[in-house]
Design a protein around this nucleic acid. Structure first.
Lengths: 355, 355
DNA sequence: CCGAAAATTGCAAACGTTTGCATAAAATAT
DNA sequence: ATATTTTATGCAAACGTTTGCAATTTTCGG
């Protein structure tokens, strides 16, 4: 009936003829409150239906027990899995996680940094936009000694804690794998080079080619946002003229899948005529026919590491200078049918034009 | 250098020889502050690197500009898509979204309700646990007039705003579809009946059978958590004795996919010997071979509706009594290869025992 | 039973905002 | 000019906690 229905510790105090301070301490299990009053207080709290006001406590303590998480999008397999793990782990330790999506827009990422700071999050983990090369919008956090961790898509020259996959090795291994399976002309569909992890994969790709004395051809690598549409566009280009490549290293599985489906349509046999490898080991890679070779990045492990790093920083005194450090999460090539050594001789490249 | 580095509005006030109230009003674009001082204040705010403290404002206003979102898990396709949409939409309107996972544990869901209340979220949207039949842990929100919206997995007899898919129709349509394609013995793998939406799908399944004069057999429906492991266990059972069914209606796509793969192994041809339909239209359903018929639940539309409902309630005065209302999101059967009418006559059921 | 130490409780300020009301300044009408 | 309205600013309380310090009570050795 009454408008003010929220019970506070002063209600408890009045009811019990105690001071608010003892009530507060009792509820927080402060050592020099007698067990008897602690019990009394807690019972009364229950009876009144008291719920602590996190904002009041947060204001007083200057901490929100909330950590921010910024990812490109939560509906993509890899960041979704990582987010899940981080969220669960931090929740076990009494932290809330404010999961935010930049939707791969730098503008949104900048706005997010601003508003997340306003909520006074206790720490921040971010996997940046594809296009973030200037990270200065995160300076506020560094300057104010708020734990800051980057993962997966991490900055290059920005001194923070970084947890990333071994993308160079990934690029190298995939390429070498294709070569070992007999490929001599390998196309690489990469993400934009504004995102460092693609730079590294490309480096791995190049090094593997060099190692096996295969010439690197600029025309055989594509830099684009790794969407289905862009993958199709790349296919049109690749298969518009012969010779067709005999291997494709796609930097994500959406792209690999799209290529595979395209090949089906134009009667290019996978893996006989063309071998395909994706990246990230999306669940779809396993179930498509032929199943697609991909690179597992162990998102659960990465999530675990990010969570641990956050918790670690969170319990250090704020004065401790934030150290730059890079943690590497291993990768593993998962060999599947799409890159299996051909049993039958590959037929000579099809001449049929696509489309 | 100094420890207290956070600038507040009183810093701005002092700097400008104004009162804190004018500064506050200036920053909030209050009408009776002159444009001149507004500009001055904002300039100084920028210069000092002032960031509003959301907790202080929240405490004063008794609102957090945060809404809670509780889902079973954010890594599953359906809730992930919905969460994405809700998050983006609410963010456009200046709200944060605290996404939380119950991991399908009732215990965790209860704890979540408690701590979310403590953070004084302005509204709450939830898709419940599979096992939530008593929803009283959400009473706090109702009692305190905090907008509360349920979606997808919704309560049966709990008076709140509800947004759900048309599960009865879904169950009906799937079953009728299988019958029309020639199935006479249809297994249904359902989720546990503690979750109302499965009750409805089962009802649809039964009604479609009755309509087409096919006897309902208790032994042909399974109630279980829809995991891969459970799906395999069900397969073992189903294919341990003849006659095999000629149709399976799985209540999610993970189950459908698992069955399909199992059939491949034991040489049951899909769709010739057995037709399979899943539910939710997971991206995997489309790319597997044969592609799996499924039911699109339009998660984006559902997310949109949930977000709109929240925003709607959010701007109503707190006094407005919360009305119970149910909104139905349509479903659509997506026909694919796994349930196509067989061209060749189905061979008589294979006798080979599985395993 | 006294005094000192230990254990328990209370006082009051502080965290950074917002806002009703009062006041001061400027603009307008007389 | 003065009185009146309009516009702009300031005062101070309030939101619900936590915590350093002071005050009180209890415990206990002698």
């Amino acid at each position: 009936m009454s408008k003010r229905t929220e019970k506070t510790i002063v209600d408890i105090a009045e009811e019990l003829k105690l001071s608010v301070s003892t009530v507060s301490r009792a509820l927080n299990n402060h050592p020099n409150i007698s067990t008897r009053t602690k019990e009394k207080v807690k019972k009364m709290a229950n009876k009144l239906g008291y719920r602590p006001n996190a904002m009041a406590a947060g204001l007083r303590n200057n901490k929100s027990r909330t950590v921010g998480l910024v990812v490109p999008r939560i509906s993509m397999f890899f960041p979704a899995t990582i987010s899940t793990v981080i969220q669960n782990k931090l929740h076990e330790h009494g932290y809330h996680v404010l999961i935010c999506q930049s939707n791969d827009s730098l503008e949104q990422e900048i706005a997010l940094a601003e508003t997340l700071y306003s909520t006074r999050i206790d720490a921040l983990a971010v996997s940046s936009t594809l296009y973030t090369t200037d990270f200065s919008h995160f300076d506020i956090f560094k300057d104010n000694h708020i734990p800051l961790v980057f993962f997966d898509r991490v900055p290059k020259d920005y001194k923070v804690k970084v947890i990333k996959g071994d993308d160079y090795l990934g690029g190298y291994k995939v390429t070498e794998h294709l070569i070992e399976k007999g490929c001599k002309d390998i196309v690489h569909i990469s993400g934009p080079l504004t995102c460092n992890l693609y730079v590294e994969r490309v480096a791995g790709y190049k090094d593997a080619l060099r190692k096996h004395k295969i010439a690197f051809k600029k025309s055989r690598v594509f830099y684009q946002e790794l969407t289905k549409e862009n993958a199709l566009a790349a296919c049109e280009k690749i298969f518009s003229k012969t010779p067709y490549p005999d291997g494709i290293f796609a930097a994500n599985d959406t792209t690999a899948i799209t290529i595979l489906e395209y090949c089906r349509k134009i009667n290019v046999r996978v893996p006989e005529d063309l071998k395909i490898v994706g990246y990230s080991n999306d669940p779809r890679a396993e179930i498509i026919t032929p199943s697609i070779t991909s690179v597992d990045q162990f998102p659960a492990i990465m999530g675990e590491k990010v969570a641990n790093a956050l918790l670690d920083l969170l319990q250090q005194p704020a004065t401790t200078p934030q150290r730059y450090s890079e943690e590497l999460v291993p990768i593993q090539l998962i060999e599947r049918a799409s890159s299996a050594a051909s049993v039958s001789k590959p037929k000579t490249t099809v001449k049929k034009k696509a489309k």
